[in-house]
Simulated assay, not measured.
Amino acid sequence: MERNFRRLIMIITLSNTKISASIDSLGAELIRLEKDHQNYIWTVDETYWNKTSPILFPIVGRLKNDAYTIVDKTYELPRHGFARNFEFQILNQTESSVVFVLESNSETLKSYPFEFQLQLEYELDGNELKMKYSVENKSNATMPFSIGAHPAFTIEDSFSDYSLQFNEAEEFVSYELENEQFNNSYRKIQSENGQINLNYSCFEKDALVFKHLKSNNLTLLKKNQPFLSVNFKGFPYLGIWTKPNAPFLCIEPWCGLADNSNHNGNFIEKEGIQLLEKNVVFQREIIISLL
């Protein structure tokens, strides 16, 4: 559901005494996050990728055949859903916070037959950016959905200078993707005391996908010095992704997963799907700390 019309660009900038953030109303997408004049979000270079921090809704990843079924009716959705391609409205705004909202409409109902309200709030608090996600089911039926974040952080100099330090020393098992679907294979990622050293070869088979982490916080290190941290409490899955030689690293907390290659297409039975009852609000929060 790519949208190719001309648009008036609306960028919202937030600030406090320590950090600032800029968000594009298209997709409510974070495009800058600065401290001491340093931007921690990568600057788009379409040679590699044309996004900075898209919201993933109402699916995460790719569906088998880009389609799913609900009550024996088939619908199509592109990878990561459609929210990132819509203009969000501003519900309220202060100097250091803003709430964006997307309502279901005639276009979303063609590919996703549920009434919803999706909110994404950005709030600055000291050195932290809090990203708060709210999904309300405004349909009469139980609403299946997934939601996830996809922020891309700037990588400078050598990619191998960077590592990830998780808050639990555990075994890291990555579930492998083939043609953007899980294929029932997995591999153990080498680590030491909760730390994974990064190199581009880690991503030769697409993203690292962790399904069973004990950790809910990770710190990105550069030459073993803390650079930033991401707290993803309440998100059961985590993706880590980049492209060959790209100057960014995506840290992606998810409430949802791509399809398995053996999936039968039934949306309700999809691995990782969230089920939301009528008029209930689902909420999650990601905290990015600049260190």
Rank of each mutant, 00 (worst) to 15 (best):
K51I: 05
K205V: 05
G272E: 09
K64T: 08
L109T: 10
L129E: 11
S289W: 00
R187E: 12
N264Q: 11
G61T: 08
P226K: 07
E271F: 05
K35H: 08
I31P: 07
L220N: 02
V60D: 00
N16R: 05
K222W: 05
Y186D: 13
F210N: 06
F145C: 11
A149F: 06
E178G: 13
Q274K: 12
K222A: 00
Y175S: 02
D206R: 09
I147V: 15
L120K: 14
Y237T: 09
E115T: 10
I55G: 01
L221C: 01
E178W: 09
F166S: 00
T43E: 15
L290E: 01
A141K: 15
P247R: 09
T74G: 03
K51F: 05
T154A: 05
P144N: 09
I9S: 15
I286S: 01
L276C: 06
F235C: 02
L30M: 09
L33A: 02
A207L: 12
N217P: 02
K51V: 02
F86Q: 13
T242W: 03
A246E: 09
G126N: 13
R79V: 14
N266L: 11
N279V: 12
I196C: 06
E192P: 01
Y200L: 07
N216L: 06
P253E: 10
W254I: 04
I273D: 12
E156R: 15
K270D: 08
Y175L: 05
P226I: 04
S139I: 03
N260V: 03
T17G: 08
K132I: 15
E180D: 15
L14D: 03
I147A: 06
A67V: 06
F82V: 15
I240T: 04
A207C: 11
F100G: 03
V209M: 08
T69A: 08
E128R: 14
S229M: 03
